[in-house]
Design a protein around this nucleic acid. Sequence first.
DNA 1: TGGTGCCATGAGACCGGTCTCAAAGAAAAG
DNA 2: CTTTTCTTTGAGACCGGTCTCATGGCACCA
Lengths: 380, 380
Amino acid sequence: MRPVSKKSYYYLDALSTGNVELSAMEKKPTYPRPVTVNDVAKRAQVSKATAARVLGGYGGASEDVRRRVTAAAKALDYKPNELARSMTTGKSGTIGVVVGDIENSFFGLAVRGISDVAHANGFNVILANSGENIEAEKSALEVLVGKRVDGLIVTPAHSGDTAHLKAVVRSGRPLVLLDRSLPGFHVDTVVVDDRDAAFNATSKLTEAGHRRIAYVSAVKAAADHFPDGSPIAISSVLERVEGFLDACRQAGIADPERWIRRGGTNEPDRLRAVVTALMSEPDHPTAILASDSVIALEIFKTLQIMKIPIPAAVSLISFHDADWTSVTNPPVTVIDQPIYAMGRKVAEILIDRVNGDTAPAAFCVMKTRLIERQSVAAPP
Amino acid sequence: MRPVSKKSYYYLDALSTGNVELSAMEKKPTYPRPVTVNDVAKRAQVSKATAARVLGGYGGASEDVRRRVTAAAKALDYKPNELARSMTTGKSGTIGVVVGDIENSFFGLAVRGISDVAHANGFNVILANSGENIEAEKSALEVLVGKRVDGLIVTPAHSGDTAHLKAVVRSGRPLVLLDRSLPGFHVDTVVVDDRDAAFNATSKLTEAGHRRIAYVSAVKAAADHFPDGSPIAISSVLERVEGFLDACRQAGIADPERWIRRGGTNEPDRLRAVVTALMSEPDHPTAILASDSVIALEIFKTLQIMKIPIPAAVSLISFHDADWTSVTNPPVTVIDQPIYAMGRKVAEILIDRVNGDTAPAAFCVMKTRLIERQSVAAPP
DNA sequence: TGGTGCCATGAGACCGGTCTCAAAGAAAAG
DNA sequence: CTTTTCTTTGAGACCGGTCTCATGGCACCA
């Protein structure tokens, strides 16, 4: 027997086991190998290096050669292999974005802002969803770094666990935080004035005469209550809670913490239970502040089911001027955040960094605005 | 309230002292070169090939070597370069998705379905937005193919211009169409029964006694009217229009085409103008069928502004059971599409193809369901 | 004890680009 | 006409993995 090459061994194995895969493979049409610079070069009668220069648009070349190469490329339908290109240049022309919940229109809008700026600057966007889960965030980051993205935009799911983010910064890859800051972590950050926003909204409620005001947030946690010993892990949530509490205290409301509740991301059932329980208490709140529009929508639905009229029995204010908030009955008063602008801003900062900007880390706070509609009234 | 500077742009470094990371950054980006298999190999005292085998998990290796390499990798914090890996294997572990409008919750949900299946199978998703623009679609495709995605999911923006899609198929890269089919283009496709859905919804309106029914679609075009000589370029739109017309004709309505209108994607002003014009005609329609939820929302708002009561003066049915449709006043009757399931299905088909499935192209039609709420009544 | 087959390992080609460097040729300067 | 400078071009290394192939060692068997 002659020496058995790996190939013929595979072949024998397939035959002896009656493997169907092989016959499938045999049938599989053999697609043309994608054309490379080398193919173009040969056809244009120049060296690989020369062809690469005109194709990649970096070196000089005579008019004659340039024309020949371009013609050959078109004739062969040459498509550059971005992978190979990225490998030598070290640049992928891609930025990675990790958001908490892609289905939340807040992130949808922010991502559009990011994409618009990215594409205008010749960058592509790889989007990953953490589902507000820190482990998913870590693995997403791992993948994006593995793909050698040029920079990262992240809405960190947890401010306690930031080793993976610090590792990114240490490796020299630009990172910008969106919507949430990380205490003690000096890196470019774009957020809104969450504290002011919550303070203003809550003040609006206290001024209307409310004394029992609930704050319902989205972030999943072990317990429903915030003041349960479990720390608040997201800066924007913390800021909002503080603004909320400040406004309550300033209005002389005692123990406002008791009305703070958490729902869960993508867990409408759980949130509904929380709201139902909240409103079933004997001295239930007369006003609710919702931390985002999906929370608010669920609260709205639940109140509707419970036949609790807005704003007659309960007033409602929500973060995020989602599109539906103006068509409900009543339309709901919201805190308008410049989300699209935030997306643009965060992408602009990132791209500057990718292009070599070494200025000190910027902390960018954007203003919000209260849009008063008809979901706020005096308490019953 | 906490003072916020007008420019809302702070330099943290100016406030904090002695930030090591940043002062290092001010110098030059002399970051440590990322560690490679070679580095690991050297540290573990084995050859590059051996280290690569255990790191890549493909070849065999003795227990001793395996342990040494693993330890070295951990000590050096080795992160594989996916780019390099993809280049030799030809597989990137990534699927590309091109949707019409990422902000439309229809696509948001579908993308979540796709992502869930993709990630469960070890694939990553690169998302691109065509904005229903055929040129943007082409360029997105170009980029994704350049990045050597393993497969593509596309919602084609135009059924007349499909050369770029055919080129993808010809190159052997799996492609699956979502939500829209392409006539004469035999490739895996996942759609809903648009024609039936439109027929049923329209029938519901005719049964309620309506004779003047408008169909408002999202797709941008040169003119407002469909029957203007410009062909309908998207299969699902065409199917819906046909279902709509069939139902009208079956109810004995003459010239139903006159009530067909187009808005525009991401052009609320334009759509509002269309609706306003439509409803300002002397014999304006008494019912409207909206082709998706963002269209419906805009129609809803416009009618509200015009003080045209729903359903007293005008009945409304919309495609897509968007979350807000149940909280409006009145809640709107919708055609529920299994969007998330469609996303999952389309990803499953694609991944099967990537894994070598060579079965003939599948055409998958999913059923819709009419959810009756309170936006339909008899005409005034 | 030699043959045989398997396993572990290392050397080096390879993927498809970029980039460095040197040689050849052309134009400009002396 | 020679020297210098600039431009155009080609040869080949390189990026960081994968993969083929050859080799050396060991177990198994007659």
